[in-house]
Deep mutational scan, measured.
Amino acid sequence: MSIQHFRVALIPFFAAFCLPVFAHPETLVKVKDAEDQLGARVGYIELDLNSGKILESFRPEERFPMMSTFKVLLCGAVLSRVDAGQEQLGRRIHYSQNDLVEYSPVTEKHLTDGMTVRELCSAAITMSDNTAANLLLTTIGGPKELTAFLHNMGDHVTRLDRWEPELNEAIPNDERDTTMPAAMATTLRKLLTGELLTLASRQQLIDWMEADKVAGPLLRSALPAGWFIADKSGAGERGSRGIIAALGPDGKPSRIVVIYTTGSQATMDERNRQIAEIGASLIKHW
């Protein structure tokens, strides 16, 4: 067993022997301040990774656009098919120029040779490549099948209805392509620590998230040296922004954090800054 596999296998073990965790309302004060600064709703939840206990939450059962955070769930569904012998990570998928959609920095470079399922998941999570996500959605049967996968996990809230990039439209009061912070946090925890996926697939999923290259201005910008984070960000229309993450000190994750916002007129930089400040408060009061 590799060191990384050992780390993920012992996530519940280490967490069980940690000192009790206590909620700190100071972080919620910052979440509410972010709402004021952005002029928009902000949803927040913080779960203990081992027990699933909610440590703090704000608007945990209000719907927010998922945006690209759905790509972690998508690759979880792909990995479940791999575990069941219905898919192979090494299978190569070929596609054409007509398949390319807006923001496809990886797939646009491989029109000639195609990409493997493993490479597509890596591109979808680490670079948020939209064509990679659409190609992977095709392998599982489309958005409705991802929703069905989530329902089978016990998540009857999260739903995907459309493809990239239309799913980022974020129309107010439109339930399409949305989740709730509580539902997303619980589902992410199941994917990373539950028995739904094999140990190898859980490790692969967290490795992809740990290698995320496009979430630097968010929670990662607030992390002290030595902290662990595996995350996936999302951005959408109407001032929408979000991030889902597993993080913790001492090089291992111990909490799940989900943050979503929508309806702001603020710039992307300002949305990023507010999420980073929430992260800084979380870490300060850990």
Rank of each mutant, 00 (worst) to 15 (best):
V42A: 03
A280I: 14
L47T: 09
T158Q: 01
R241V: 12
L282C: 03
G279D: 01
G76D: 01
K190Q: 15
I256M: 12
E108G: 14
D174W: 08
T27D: 08
F228K: 14
E164I: 00
Q97Y: 08
I140D: 05
G216C: 10
E87G: 12
L247H: 02
R92E: 10
E270A: 07
W208C: 09
A200I: 10
I54G: 06
T193G: 07
L223T: 12
G114I: 05
D113H: 02
H156P: 10
D33W: 02
R202L: 06
E26W: 15
T138R: 12
K30N: 05
L136A: 09
M67L: 13
L38K: 13
Y95N: 08
P105A: 08
G85L: 08
N173R: 12
E87Q: 11
M66Y: 08
T267G: 05
M127A: 08
G226W: 13
T139G: 06
I93T: 14
L196K: 14
P253C: 03
G154T: 07
A34V: 06
M153T: 03
D129N: 01
T187D: 14
E26T: 13
A133P: 03
T112A: 14
C121Q: 02
W208V: 13
R273V: 05
A222C: 02
E61H: 07
I45S: 12
A34R: 09
L47A: 11
N173H: 15
T139P: 10
L79Y: 11
D36M: 07
L205P: 01
V258N: 03
G85K: 07
I229K: 09
Y95Q: 14
L197H: 08
E108M: 09
G154V: 06
E119I: 01
D129K: 00
V72K: 01
Q86D: 14
I275G: 01
D177P: 00
P143Q: 14
E108Q: 13
P105W: 06
F70K: 13
W286R: 05
V82S: 08
M180H: 08
P105L: 06
G194M: 08
C121G: 09
A84L: 07
Q265L: 09
I206W: 07
Y103I: 02
S122D: 12
R41N: 12
L160E: 09
V42N: 02
T147R: 11
N50D: 11
S68E: 00
T116E: 15
E26V: 14
L160N: 02
K190V: 11
P217R: 12
V214F: 14
S51H: 13
A183S: 08
A132P: 00
V82H: 09
S281A: 09
G263H: 08
D48E: 03
L73Q: 15
V258P: 00
F228S: 14
V29R: 07
G242V: 01
Y95G: 08
K109Q: 13
T261L: 09
E61A: 03
L218V: 03
A170L: 02
L28V: 07
G279K: 01
E175C: 09
R273M: 06
L49W: 11
A133K: 01
R255Q: 13
I275V: 08
V42H: 02
L196W: 07
I140V: 10
V78K: 12
T116I: 09
W208E: 06
L160P: 07
P65W: 02
R91M: 07
A182D: 06
R63I: 14
S201D: 12
P143K: 02
N272S: 12
R255C: 10
L137C: 10
L120Q: 03
G52R: 14
K144W: 03
T126R: 06
A77S: 12
V214M: 11
A185N: 01
A185R: 00
E270F: 06
L120P: 00
N173M: 09
T261W: 04
I259P: 00
R159C: 08
W286I: 04
T267A: 04
T261D: 15
G263V: 12
